Lab assay of single mutants.
Amino acid sequence: PDDLEKRARELLKRGKNPDEIREYLRNAGYDQSQAEEALKRAL
């Protein structure tokens, strides 16, 4: 898994919901489609 996916998994483990994770990834400078893909793979 790429770093983005790892980060998404990490956040899920900490109890973040998908919307929070999307926002976090966007704020971290990733584009929307990258964030969506990583989140899908992590779920």
Results as ranks from 00 to 15, higher is better:
residue 21 I to M: 01
residue 14 R to H: 14
residue 36 E to M: 04
residue 20 E to A: 05
residue 35 A to L: 14
residue 27 N to H: 09
residue 27 N to P: 00
residue 11 L to G: 02
residue 18 P to A: 12
residue 23 E to N: 06
residue 5 E to A: 14
residue 33 S to F: 13
residue 26 R to D: 04
residue 17 N to M: 10
residue 18 P to W: 10
residue 29 G to M: 02
residue 12 L to D: 02
residue 5 E to D: 10
residue 15 G to E: 01
residue 17 N to S: 15
residue 12 L to Q: 04
residue 14 R to T: 14
residue 21 I to L: 03
residue 9 R to T: 09
residue 8 A to Q: 00
residue 38 A to W: 09
residue 28 A to I: 11
residue 34 Q to T: 11
residue 5 E to C: 11
residue 39 L to A: 02
residue 23 E to S: 05
residue 39 L to S: 01
residue 39 L to W: 01
residue 12 L to H: 07
residue 40 K to Q: 14
residue 30 Y to Q: 02
residue 23 E to V: 04
residue 3 D to Q: 09
residue 43 L to Y: 06
residue 2 D to V: 11
residue 8 A to Y: 03
residue 20 E to D: 07
residue 17 N to Y: 06
residue 5 E to K: 07
residue 42 A to R: 01
residue 9 R to N: 07
residue 29 G to W: 01
residue 32 Q to V: 13
residue 30 Y to F: 12
residue 13 K to W: 06
residue 31 D to K: 05
residue 34 Q to C: 11
residue 10 E to M: 04
residue 21 I to K: 00
residue 10 E to K: 04
residue 28 A to Y: 07
residue 39 L to N: 00
residue 13 K to R: 12
residue 26 R to A: 11
residue 31 D to M: 06
residue 34 Q to P: 03
residue 37 E to S: 08
residue 32 Q to R: 11
residue 31 D to T: 14
residue 12 L to N: 03
residue 39 L to R: 00
residue 13 K to N: 13
residue 26 R to N: 06
residue 26 R to Y: 10
residue 8 A to L: 15
residue 31 D to G: 09
residue 33 S to H: 14
residue 43 L to E: 04
residue 26 R to L: 14
residue 25 L to V: 01
residue 9 R to L: 14
residue 37 E to K: 07
residue 4 L to Y: 06
residue 13 K to I: 10
residue 22 R to Y: 14
residue 24 Y to W: 11
residue 10 E to I: 05
residue 24 Y to G: 04
residue 22 R to G: 04
residue 38 A to M: 07
residue 23 E to T: 04
residue 15 G to F: 03
residue 39 L to C: 02
residue 15 G to L: 03
residue 15 G to T: 02
residue 23 E to L: 04
residue 40 K to E: 13
residue 35 A to E: 01
residue 34 Q to L: 12
residue 41 R to W: 05
residue 18 P to Y: 09
residue 41 R to M: 08
residue 12 L to A: 06
residue 27 N to G: 09
residue 6 K to Q: 13
residue 8 A to D: 00
residue 10 E to F: 02
residue 41 R to E: 05
residue 28 A to W: 09
residue 3 D to I: 09
residue 34 Q to K: 10
residue 34 Q to F: 07
residue 28 A to R: 06
residue 2 D to T: 12
residue 38 A to P: 01
residue 16 K to W: 15
residue 33 S to G: 13
residue 32 Q to K: 11
residue 23 E to A: 07
residue 7 R to T: 15
